Measured scan of single mutants.
Amino acid sequence: DAPDEFRDPLMDTLMTDPVRLPSGTIMDRSIILRHLLNSPTDPFNRQTLTESMLEPVPELKEQIQAWMR
């Protein structure tokens, strides 16, 4: 099983494109984008959230890719 820090906190699946929300939570980009289609909010604190506020986490993405090899 993947380490917890590699798993999306909402869907508990392996992240492939991790992004940091303004709240500091790291999620998979595809999952948070799907959530934003229904509700333009951070799913953990209900603060306003837009796609432009998502910050890529390239170092975590590299760690996940290395773990998958």
Score class of each variant (00 low, 15 high):
D1L: 14
D1I: 14
D1Q: 14
D1H: 15
D1S: 13
D1R: 14
D1G: 13
D1P: 12
D1V: 13
A2N: 05
A2W: 13
P3A: 05
P3C: 08
P3I: 04
P3E: 04
P3N: 05
D4K: 15
D4T: 14
E5I: 13
E5P: 09
E5V: 11
E5M: 13
E5A: 13
E5D: 10
F6T: 02
F6I: 03
F6S: 02
F6N: 01
F6K: 02
R7T: 08
R7A: 03
D8F: 03
D8C: 10
P9A: 12
P9R: 07
P9V: 04
P9I: 05
L10C: 13
M11E: 13
D12Q: 14
D12Y: 14
D12S: 12
T13I: 12
T13G: 06
T13K: 08
L14I: 14
L14P: 06
L14G: 01
L14Y: 05
M15A: 00
M15P: 01
M15E: 01
T16Q: 12
T16L: 14
T16K: 12
P18T: 01
V19E: 00
V19A: 02
V19F: 03
R20Q: 07
R20I: 06
R20H: 04
R20W: 05
L21P: 00
L21S: 00
L21M: 06
L21I: 04
L21V: 03
P22D: 01
P22I: 04
P22E: 01
P22Y: 03
P22L: 04
S23N: 07
S23K: 03
S23H: 05
S23T: 07
S23V: 01
G24I: 02
G24S: 04
G24H: 04
G24N: 05
G24Y: 03
G24L: 04
G24M: 05
T25N: 11
T25M: 15
T25V: 15
I26R: 02
I26H: 03
I26P: 01
I26N: 01
I26G: 00
I26F: 03
M27R: 02
M27Y: 05
M27L: 06
M27G: 01
D28M: 05
R29F: 07
R29V: 06
R29M: 07
R29P: 02
R29D: 00
R29C: 07
S30E: 13
S30L: 12
I31E: 04
I31K: 03
I32P: 00
I32Q: 01
I32K: 00
L33C: 10
L33Q: 09
L33A: 08
L33P: 01
L33E: 08
L33H: 06
L33F: 06
R34F: 10
R34T: 11
R34C: 13
R34P: 02
H35R: 05
H35S: 06
H35L: 12
H35N: 04
L36M: 08
L36F: 06
L36E: 00
L37H: 11
L37S: 12
L37M: 14
L37C: 10
N38H: 14
N38V: 14
N38T: 15
S39M: 08
S39C: 10
S39P: 01
S39F: 10
S39Q: 09
S39T: 11
S39Y: 10
S39K: 07
P40I: 06
P40Y: 09
P40R: 12
P40W: 08
T41Q: 08
T41N: 08
D42T: 01
D42L: 03
D42Y: 04
D42R: 04
D42F: 04
P43F: 04
P43I: 03
F44W: 11
F44D: 02
F44I: 07
F44Y: 07
N45Y: 06
N45D: 10
N45L: 07
N45I: 06
R46C: 15
R46K: 14
R46H: 15
Q47V: 10
Q47R: 10
T48S: 13
T48I: 13
T48N: 12
T48R: 13
T48W: 15
T48P: 15
T48Q: 12
T48C: 13
L49M: 08
T50K: 15
T50S: 11
T50Q: 09
T50N: 12
T50A: 09
T50H: 13
E51H: 09
E51G: 08
S52V: 10
S52R: 10
S52Q: 12
S52C: 09
S52K: 11
M53T: 04
M53C: 05
M53S: 06
M53V: 05
M53F: 04
M53Y: 04
M53N: 07
L54M: 05
L54I: 07
L54S: 00
L54H: 01
E55Q: 12
E55W: 07
E55L: 11
P56T: 08
P56V: 07
V57M: 14
V57S: 05
V57A: 08
V57F: 08
V57L: 13
V57R: 04
P58A: 09
P58E: 09
P58M: 08
P58D: 09
P58T: 10
P58K: 09
E59S: 12
E59H: 12
L60Y: 02
L60F: 06
L60C: 07
L60T: 01
K61G: 06
K61L: 13
K61E: 06
K61C: 09
E62A: 15
E62P: 00
E62H: 10
E62Q: 13
E62Y: 12
E62I: 11
Q63C: 11
Q63N: 08
Q63G: 05
I64S: 00
I64K: 01
I64Q: 00
I64H: 00
I64V: 07
Q65E: 15
Q65H: 14
Q65C: 13
Q65T: 10
A66K: 13
A66P: 00
A66E: 15
A66F: 10
A66N: 14
W67M: 06
W67C: 09
W67V: 05
M68V: 12
M68L: 15
R69L: 13
R69F: 11
